[in-house]
Amino acid sequence: MENTFETNTGEYGRPTLTKQKQYALNKELAQMLKGGVIMDVTTPEQARIAEEAGACAVMALERIPADIRAAGGVSRMSDPKMIKGIMEAVSIPVMAKCRIGHFAEAQILEAVEIDYIDESEVLSPADDVYHIDKTQFKVPFVCGAKDLGEALRRICEGASMIRTKGEPGTGDIVQAVRHMRKMNSEIAKVSAMREEELYHAAKELQVPFELLKTVHDTKRLPVVNFAAGGIATPADAALMMQLGAEGVFVGSGIFKSGNPAKRAAAIVKAVTNYNDAKMIAELSEDLGEAMVGINENEIELLMAERGK
């Protein structure tokens, strides 16, 4: 059938779902992750530390962004065996990255029944024109975006969750802040437009009118929006939450720091109580060394510029 995915036969089976319903369920999984922290992990051991510390999901990858940046070269999807090892180690959802436009990698991740695919600019892009047609997949996708136009283009292609791109592997929050602020101000602008102005705005942003109209009517993105890229401290996490993020991804910030378990747990609590400065002050004490980090103007490769 054209508009349905074939029946998935798990232990208890499930009815055949239309594509629309599958997409709704995928957006809803992202809703369940809200108010939580998704942590990059490279081994089952790290995954267990992350789960114990209160991660609401983990991102399984061979090298965290800081190491990808340091190593250089082409960065690809991780070994499925390594991903499966992490899926077996924890009970929370597991995400994994594929390269921008690399639908064959995405097919592999779907085949191992990953919970979420991140079509990610952290890896080397496989296609410099097209992103993956995510509507062809049952498994959900999260994609990075620097602004409203990118976010809506990814949603149009089938992404069911958005995150800021930030600048991965730097420990520098400036880009995540810039992307979140830009998104917010563009949403505010679109919300205030008269309907006839939306046609022009859709053209400028290179997005479908209907999607932009949804943003106009609801004053928000039609999917959950997390912050990612450069979050290294509880204060960074609180900053992004106060700027309107619905949750955070922490990549290199945890396992590149002195005391990963403690820092991870502190960031989790800071996301829940992001308005409570007194609590975050306590959480920020004695966390050991934060990742060293590099400033955005000290790096040569801007990952955020990949895939628009």
Binding site: N8, G10, E11, Y12, R14, P15, L17, K21, A24, L25, N26, E28, L29, M87, S91, P93, E110, E113, I114, D115, Y116, K138, V139, P140
Partner: peptide
Amino acid sequence: NAYGRQLGSFYQ
């Protein structure tokens, strides 16, 4: 997680 991973999520 009795129905499996996200691919086991459903509507009824």
